[in-house]
Write a protein that binds this DNA or RNA. Structure first.
Lengths: 163, 163
DNA sequence: GTACAGTAGTTGTAGCAACAACCAATCAAG
DNA sequence: CTTGATTGGTTGTTGCTACAACTACTGTAC
């Protein structure tokens, strides 16, 4: 085995901060959504993706890709959302293997109601502490990391538009 | 209800990238550690904290603080690590309510063996894609976000030193 | 048309984390 | 010393995710 590389003090310091954010941020978002809207972040995200889709409808496979989930995980989650009346399933006419997930009116109401609180949390925890130039740096640095983590750029559309 | 604030396009773009990193990075670290060392990231982190502590010993409460875990979660994890012979418990002499967690020799060997692979993954996914100036920006921006997420700076010591 | 590989999705199971209930030891007040 | 509050830690339950097995359908080759 070759002598392993190590991090410089500057790299270590930055790394520690990144890992701390990675550990703490999901919990913050999760608990706000859970408390204010009774949704996990993944559930919110799933509803949000559907709310932006044409006819508020997406194939399970494509919804799984947009939410960065496995089909199995998505299937379980959609089952729960279906039981709560926020989403319904429908057989796909063109390909009878396929299933469409459709946002119900109740689901639309739910995601519309949840969005402002969620965005408020994002603003408070991430955006407001940063200057415009910080935001630009964040964008650039995360972009470089993503080139490694997600070379095919599957993670794209997020958050619903307000309008 | 007041008109909710929204993100500017630049902010939204940076936010999307941050959230993508936050979603993808843990899985990458997790699977490397699981595959190469049979440890979850949290287990590795727990062992790493102990390996840096004086006498490789820490009170459960203080270990929980350093790993950003609840006492309940830590207790379960230490039980598992104890069954694997990587950690042992010992009643605390000064305060008989307290329990010390102690890294065993086998635990030390395990964390020493796991560290290079883990650090290699960190380098490959996060550090190497960045310039020195990117690293400095990352440090500054994450620092600002952490001021909100973790004002008391509990998350500090990480990763073992090589030596 | 039928055999076979690949695609779409569901479901069962096992393992881990969050939450809450719980026990034991300490500390402070009278 | 004994009551009550606090701290330190463990354990049981519940819910969610990963993994693997399975069904069902499609398309292609023969």
């Amino acid at each position: 085995m070759t002598e392993p590389r190590w991090l410089t003090p500057e790299q270590l310091c930055a790394w520690k901060k990144l890992i701390a954010v990675v550990e703490l941020l999901p919990g913050t978002l999760e608990s706000q959504l859970q408390r204010d809207s009774g949704l996990s972040h993944f559930e919110y995200f799933t509803l949000a993706m559907l709310s932006e889709a044409p006819d508020r409808t997406l194939r399970m496979t494509s919804l799984a890709a947009q939410t960065n989930a496995t089909l199995a995980r998505l299937s379980h989650v959609v089952t729960r959302l279906e039981k709560r009346g926020l989403v319904r399933r429908e057989a796909c006419a063109e390909d009878r293997r396929a299933t469409n997930a459709i946002l119900t009116p109740a689901g639309w109401t739910t995601v519309e109601a949840a969005a402002p609180g969620h965005v408020g949390t994002v603003l408070a925890t991430v955006i407001d502490p940063l200057t415009d130039s910080d935001v630009a740096d964040l964008d650039r640095v995360m972009g470089r990391i993503l080139e490694v983590l997600d070379p095919s750029h599957i993670m794209v559309g997020l958050l619903p538009t307000d309008d």
